[in-house]
Design a protein around this nucleic acid. Structure first.
Length: 878
DNA sequence: ATAATCACG
DNA sequence: ACGTACGTGATTATG
């Protein structure tokens, strides 16, 4: 059996995967797609061939990308984009870490080095395979030298294999003859001219018949048609030169010791570190030494059953000396509990009907005992564990969110990866997509393991996470804002909001009748039935059949979005009907029918408030989303009439007045904007007066609206294009408005510029309270992405600070409600609004508390003002 | 699963 | 020259 030698063409594989895979970056903004593709191919080959020897060749000099020469660059080979260039050293570093030999020979391209080595390897008795993305390599195929060409499509990698025979059957010529073919057809990407006018088809025909170009030249009279014959006759010198260029040099002077190609342990700690840095989550599981770790961990998992044992475990947990942190974890219901008393003693307790209440009592007393508890999904667990807020309890998911709010999930495996440099089985791998409830029954062992891993990770990751929060200056935010808020959100979810089910159903019915009418009218007018909900069908009809103007295309067809249809609505009544249809179906499906499904037996909707979703620090709302209930148009707004307080209660609703602009004034320190807020009640009007240089009393509604749009634009991270879109004016006019605005409020511009600059420097934007939001887009070489990053850098401190402030307000309002022993409760938070279900007799207290706590939530150089109202429905209270 | 659309701040 | 406003979530159609 011959020893296997695999030789890889580094540059060509990186090139292929770079263009084949979608853009991919790690959280630091480093592009990683080509590395990822390379590593996948490398592993695939290692898995398939298990070679003993392997080496990777790179070109020493590649054309470099320079902005100033980009346009004028005349070469036919594409310059390497910086997103790829930055990945090159990473791959080399990774290979070095894996102990894989890198070959670079100045003056020679990688394929020459590979060709030479393949030849030498063959004489030394190796079974050689050459891996490249470049089909030119096929000329090196022999009976026992395999050419492997990976194809990356849709994430999976297929490899095409060629021995000499395979080349013949695919192309009809031998590998050597491929050189002759290329001499004739040329190759633009390699700057090989070939014979002008002869392409692949003709070249293959000629070489199949005459074997090589010299022989073809000698018999050129036999070549038909005459045109081709003449082409060859006239360009033989170019063909000869092309042949030289096309042939891979297999005589490069090299003196590598093949023993250096011998593979050792690839999965080293160093390689692991690089993988982790690149955030190649899936690939980390390959590392054996980490598996060994998990085996060790699993040895400390024990299942206990009897009450006595349970009692003993809790006693052990409570008595641990200063080590401090215990952890417990369950799924989203008390189906099983895992407790890590120490890293070596992790207990799983299956929950039965007999021990359920006993167990929750033990857990509650453990939480209340004052020892430190680390866990995840605490808000979920509060649903079945009655816990008061305690500053000894840490939810690690919340902390990890603060460290990087851009992640999708903060599960135990994510925490292990990010704070323990460890790969542990994810819940999907253990219990699949089963709910915890189902898993506890159907896969009890896996569920136990899952729970134990959660407990282990919580215990082990707590300290490193707290340290990282401390280093980042976010510990205070974590301990005193986010952790207490978790309880506040849980309480809101638990309280829920009352909904008049009957009235909601009637509303839905009413909508249904009107939708039916509109559907008929629209279908009659068009002359046939079609699905008005299908943007595809609708677009076809409007812009292809009716030939309406303003057609704008999206990826898949015509855009039928409201802003386009609105331009047509006055001129074409059918469009206006379609818009109305859209509005009503939206209201019916999402709100009338949608909300009805969430009303519980207590006539209340208990939505979920998510604390770890929004990049800026805002809270989000799901199942249902109670933060996007219609208000802007009356037909939708009336849905708020079905949101009502309990008898004996009334809604008191308070919302901040232009909180984001006030934050902008305060953070920027712009005297004019600050003064404007101190003096005037109508900030948009005063801004209009200043920007348009008009006396305050003479400001027109249009001017005020324009100024308002500019104010909005500033908060969103202004751009003249965006503003022009929002105001339907030209970009030039928009730019003028912005310029005037910045002249009026010069420090606002300074502030926005500094926000971008700081975010570029630090890699993240930061709020008044130290909350961070990474902005990796700022590093992108893509204009669009980078611009996006700049807008994000301007917006995040503003939106994020507003989020911080209302969070503080919520905590303080809750604290006061509790302190005064009131029954009134916050039921909703809508970014700048708090809705309180107030006992009627407590109304005055609630007003006072909301007023005081909301306006005093932060020290600012402009006052925080609120609007406050009351009513027996949300409609009336806001 | 993804794109388009539209509801809110 | 590039081609967008910032942050969310639910529904529907469609590949």
């Amino acid at each position: 059996m011959k020893k296997k030698l695999v030789l890889i063409d580094g540059n060509s594989i990186l090139n292929r995967t770079f263009y084949a895979l979608p853009e991919l970056t790690n959280s630091r903004g480093i592009h990683t797609n080509a590395v990822y593709g390379f590593v996948n191919i490398l592993f695939k080959i290692l898995d398939e061939e298990s070679p003993e020897y392997l080496a990777v060749a790179f070109d020493v000099k590649m054309p470099t990308f320079r902005h100033d020469m980009y346009e004028g660059y005349k070469g036919t080979r594409k310059p390497m984009p910086p997103e790829l260039q930055e990945q090159l050293p990473i791959v080399k570093e990774l290979l070095a870490a894996m102990g894989i030999q890198i070959m670079e020979k100045p003056g020679y391209e990688a394929d020459d080095v590979l060709g030479t080595l393949a030849k030498i390897g063959k004489t030394k008795g190796f079974a050689v395979s050459l891996v490249s993305g470049d089909r030119d390599m096929l000329q090196l195929a022999t009976d026992d030298t395999l050419i492997r060409i990976p194809k990356t499509k849709f994430g999976s990698t297929e490899i095409e294999d060629y021995y000499a025979d395979d080349v013949v059957s695919k192309y009809g010529v031998t590998p050597e003859e491929l050189i002759e073919v290329k001499a004739l057809m040329g190759d633009a990407s390699d700057n090989i001219p070939g014979v002008p006018g002869i392409g692949e088809k003709t070249a293959l025909k000629i070489i199949t018949e005459f074997k090589d170009i010299e022989n073809a030249y000698a018999h050129r009279e036999e070549i038909k048609p005459a045109r081709t014959s003449n082409l060859l006759g006239d360009n033989m010198e170019t063909a000869r030169m092309s042949r030289k260029l096309a042939a891979i040099d297999t005589k490069v002077p090299l003196n590598y010791d093949f023993e250096d190609f011998k593979l050792k342990n690839l999965l080293t700690k160093e390689a692991y570190q690089i993988f982790k840095d690149l955030e190649f989550k899936r690939l980390l599981s390959r590392f054996d030494f980490k598996h060994a770790d998990t085996n060790d961990i699993e040895e400390s998992f024990k299942t206990i059953l009897s009450m006595d044992e349970i009692r003993a475990v809790f006693e052990q947990a409570e008595k641990q000396p200063s080590a401090g942190v215990r952890a417990f974890a369950t799924g989203s219901g008390l189906y099983g509990a895992a407790i890590a008393a120490t890293e070596e003693n992790i207990y799983y307790i299956p929950v039965t009907d007999e021990n359920r209440s006993f167990l929750s009592e033990m857990l509650q007393s453990l939480f209340a005992s004052g020892i430190k508890i680390a866990t995840t999904n605490l808000k979920e667990q509060l649903k079945y564990l009655d816990l008061e807020y305690s500053d000894n309890v840490y939810d690690l998911g919340i902390g990890a969110y603060l460290m990087n709010p851009l992640k999708d999930t903060y599960h135990h495996d994510d925490l292990a990866r990010d704070y323990l440099e460890m790969t542990v089985p994810a819940s999907e791998g253990l219990i699949g997509k089963l709910s915890p409830e189902a898993a506890a029954v159907q896969k009890p062992e896996e569920f136990a393991k899952y729970a134990c891993y959660c407990a282990y990770v919580s215990l082990a990751a707590c300290k490193p996470l707290l340290e990282r929060l401390e280093e980042s200056g976010m510990l205070d935010l974590y301990l005193n804002m986010e952790m207490p808020l978790l309880y506040a959100l849980h309480e809101m979810e638990k309280v829920g909001i009352r909904v008049e089910k009957k009235a909601l159903e009637e509303y839905g019915h009413e909508l249904g009748v009107r939708i039916e009418g509109l559907t008929k009218e629209i279908h009659t007018e068009i002359g046939r039935d079609f699905n008005i909900n299908s943007p595809k069908q609708l677009g076809e009809i409007l812009f292809n059949e009716l030939k309406l103007p303003f057609a704008k295309k999206t990826k898949t067809g015509y855009s039928t979005s409201a802003d386009i249809l609105e331009k047509l609505a006055t001129e074409f009544p059918i469009v206006s009907k379609i818009l109305e249809y859209r509005q009503l179906t939206k209201l019916k499906s999402t709100y009338a029918d949608g909300l009805a499904g969430y009303i519980g037996p207590d006539n209340r909707i208990h939505g979920t408030f998510n604390q770890t979703i929004a990049a800026t620090g805002r809270i989000s709302s799901t199942e249902p989303n109670l933060q996007n209930i219609p208000i802007r148009v009356e037909m939708g707004r009336i849905i708020r009439k079905v949101f009502v307080p309990e008898p004996g209660y009334i809604f008191v609703d308070a919302d901040y007045s232009q909180i984001e602009l006030r934050i902008l004034a305060s953070l920027s320190g712009d005297e004019n904007l600050i003064r404007a807020y101190k003096e005037a009640s109508d900030i948009h009007r005063i801004t209009a007066a200043k920007v348009f240089n008009t006396p305050l009393e003479e400001v027109t509604n249009t001017q005020r609206n324009n100024a308002k749009a500019v104010n909005f634009g500033i908060v969103y991270g202004i751009s003249s294009f965006g503003l022009s879109q929002g105001l339907s004016i030209t970009r030039k006019e928009a730019a003028k408005y912005i310029e005037q605005y910045f002249k009026t409020y010069p420090k606002v511009k300074e502030f926005l510029d500094k926000s971008v600059e700081d975010a570029k420097k630090n890699g993240y934007a930061v709020t008044m309270f130290g909350r961070r939001r990474p902005v990796p887009e700022l590093k992108s070489s893509n204009f669009m992405q980078r611009s996006f990053g700049e807008r994000v850098a301007m917006n995040s401190p503003i939106q994020g600070t507003a989020a911080d402030i209302i969070k503080i307000a919520m905590l303080n309002v809750n604290r006061e409600l509790k302190k005064q022993g009131l029954k009134s409760k916050i039921v909703l938070q809508v970014h700048d609004e708090l809705l309180v279900e107030a006992a009627i007799e407590e109304k005055e207290n609630v007003y006072e508390i909301l007023n005081r706590e909301m306006t005093n939530a932060a020290r600012m150089s402009v006052p925080l003002e609120i609007g406050i109202d009351e009513g027996y429905s949300w409609y009336d209270a806001h």
